[in-house]
Amino acid sequence: MDLSIFLGMVGVPQVILIAVILLLLFGGRKIPELMRGLGSGIKEFKDASKNDEDDKQSKPASNKE
């Protein structure tokens, strides 16, 4: 089977079902903490990748000197 078939079938009812399952599993109080942790993890990842790109760009400039 082709995976793209399943990825194209995600709609509003499926998102609502996933949200209800998450609510039942983790409870209402735990979800904001999980989302905060996920957001900070994404932010740290973006910062690290940006710093890595800056390091790569600065190395050739320092080699020319």
Score class of each variant (00 low, 15 high):
residue 1 M to D: 04
residue 1 M to I: 11
residue 1 M to H: 05
residue 1 M to R: 05
residue 2 D to G: 05
residue 2 D to M: 09
residue 3 L to P: 11
residue 5 I to C: 08
residue 6 F to C: 04
residue 7 L to Q: 03
residue 7 L to R: 01
residue 7 L to E: 04
residue 7 L to H: 02
residue 8 G to I: 02
residue 8 G to T: 07
residue 10 V to R: 14
residue 10 V to C: 06
residue 11 G to S: 11
residue 12 V to W: 09
residue 13 P to N: 05
residue 14 Q to K: 08
residue 14 Q to N: 07
residue 14 Q to P: 00
residue 15 V to P: 01
residue 15 V to T: 02
residue 16 I to W: 06
residue 16 I to P: 01
residue 16 I to K: 09
residue 17 L to T: 00
residue 17 L to G: 00
residue 18 I to K: 01
residue 18 I to D: 00
residue 20 V to H: 04
residue 20 V to Y: 02
residue 20 V to M: 08
residue 21 I to S: 01
residue 21 I to M: 00
residue 22 L to S: 02
residue 22 L to R: 03
residue 23 L to K: 11
residue 24 L to K: 14
residue 24 L to I: 12
residue 25 L to C: 13
residue 25 L to K: 15
residue 25 L to E: 15
residue 25 L to N: 15
residue 26 F to W: 13
residue 26 F to T: 10
residue 28 G to M: 14
residue 29 R to F: 02
residue 29 R to Q: 04
residue 29 R to N: 03
residue 31 I to E: 10
residue 31 I to W: 14
residue 31 I to K: 12
residue 32 P to D: 08
residue 32 P to L: 10
residue 34 L to F: 07
residue 35 M to E: 09
residue 35 M to I: 10
residue 35 M to G: 15
residue 35 M to C: 14
residue 35 M to L: 15
residue 36 R to I: 13
residue 36 R to M: 11
residue 36 R to D: 11
residue 37 G to L: 04
residue 37 G to V: 01
residue 38 L to E: 05
residue 38 L to D: 05
residue 38 L to V: 08
residue 39 G to M: 12
residue 39 G to S: 14
residue 39 G to K: 08
residue 39 G to Q: 12
residue 40 S to R: 06
residue 41 G to W: 02
residue 41 G to L: 05
residue 42 I to M: 07
residue 43 K to T: 14
residue 44 E to P: 02
residue 44 E to C: 05
residue 44 E to Y: 07
residue 44 E to Q: 11
residue 44 E to D: 10
residue 45 F to V: 06
residue 45 F to Y: 09
residue 46 K to C: 07
residue 46 K to A: 15
residue 46 K to G: 09
residue 46 K to M: 12
residue 47 D to I: 04
residue 48 A to Y: 05
residue 49 S to R: 13
residue 49 S to K: 13
residue 50 K to I: 01
residue 50 K to N: 01
residue 52 D to H: 07
residue 52 D to K: 10
residue 52 D to I: 07
residue 52 D to Q: 10
residue 52 D to P: 00
residue 54 D to K: 06
residue 54 D to L: 06
residue 55 D to G: 12
residue 55 D to W: 02
residue 55 D to C: 06
residue 55 D to L: 09
residue 56 K to F: 07
residue 56 K to C: 06
residue 56 K to E: 12
residue 57 Q to E: 08
residue 57 Q to N: 11
residue 58 S to R: 14
residue 58 S to D: 09
residue 59 K to F: 13
residue 59 K to N: 08
residue 59 K to A: 13
residue 60 P to H: 09
residue 60 P to M: 07
residue 61 A to N: 11
residue 63 N to P: 02
residue 63 N to F: 15
residue 63 N to M: 15
residue 64 K to F: 13
residue 64 K to N: 09
residue 65 E to H: 04
residue 65 E to A: 13
residue 65 E to C: 05
residue 65 E to L: 14
